[in-house]
């Protein structure tokens, strides 16, 4: 692999995304992406006694499911990159206790899954043949840790975020027939001083725009090279802001850009 421009890495032997899968909660199951999820849950507890235990169960079942779908034995997986929102990433570390694969815990908040794919790709160019990447989040455990008790009678402003309850996992393979990860552009932290905990889209949009534009500059590509440009967690306000920022820097992403959060619910 070699470095392109300021931040981008180009792979000489691009890894293949062999398999992927997801399990989500009941609210996500009612959204427009419902048919793309492998499994949906009836409630947020899934038989467990606490939100945190439920979240651990979700990531455990998701990773087991993806490994089974791929046909590869877990012993042939060289390492796993996984993370979540909770303190000490307990959801991933407890959930993957029995997986018996070398474990790299990562924390990137809303960027955790892409971060694990980036690190997993780099691993395939060095020591790994197969890498498992996984992440999870749970609305109730996130609210409990970061915001307010669920039963508190407070009003949420229109811009407030709704954390997804669910887990996604993917297996990367050194050899395969695609889809390939050809380039990765790790992004910088960009803090424009948004302190409103109820407007995370606005807090995150500048970093997204900065990473995207750096990617275009490093690779020499323009937005319409891509069939789709997708962000994970900006929401409809963050999405609008991202389009505006890109436009102010001369990049028109409006026609092929979409955001997962604004598509989820």
């Amino acid at each position: 692999m070699k470095k392109l421009g300021k931040q981008t890495i180009k792979f000489d032997n691009p890894p293949t995304i062999l398999e992927c899968g997801s399990i989500v909660g009941p609210k996500e199951a009612q959204g427009p992406l419902a048919k793309y999820f492998d499994q949906t849950l009836e409630d947020e507890f899934w038989g467990e006694k606490s939100w945190e235990k439920a979240e651990s169960k979700i990531i455990k079942e998701t990773t087991n499911m993806v490994i089974a779908k791929s046909g590869i034995s877990s012993q042939d997986i060289d390492c796993v990159f996984a993370g979540d929102l909770l303190n000490q990433c307990i959801s991933s570390s407890f959930g993957l206790r029995e997986i018996n694969i070398p474990f790299f815990g990562v924390f990137g908040a809303c960027s955790t899954f892409v971060e694990s794919l980036c690190l997993g790709s780099i691993a395939t160019e060095s020591f790994a043949n197969h890498v498992l990447c996984a992440t999870s989040s749970h609305f109730c455990s996130a609210e409990k840790q970061f915001r307010f008790p669920l039963e508190l009678g407070n009003q949420r402003p229109p811009s407030s975020q709704w954390t997804v309850t669910g887990s996604g996992a993917a297996i990367l393979s050194k050899d395969g027939n695609g889809p390939y990860i050809t380039h990765i552009t790790p992004g910088k932290i960009v803090d424009m001083g948004i302190k409103d905990a109820n407007n995370m889209g606005a807090a995150m949009a500048p970093a997204f725009a900065d990473t995207l534009i750096t990617h275009f500059t490093d690779t020499g590509r323009s937005p319409n090279y891509y069939d789709a440009i997708i962000s994970g967690d900006l929401g409809y306000i963050g999405k609008d802001i991202a389009i505006d920022i890109a436009k102010s820097k001369g990049y028109n992403i409006k026609s092929n850009y979409n955001d997962c959060r604004s598509s989820y619910f």
């Binding site: 609210k27 409630d43 947020e44 609305f139 109730c140 609210e143 008790p149 669920l150 039963e151 709704w162 619910f265």
Partner: peptide
Amino acid sequence: ISKPKMKKQ
């Protein structure tokens, strides 16, 4: 005597 439940939108 209660049980916490998921918040509805």
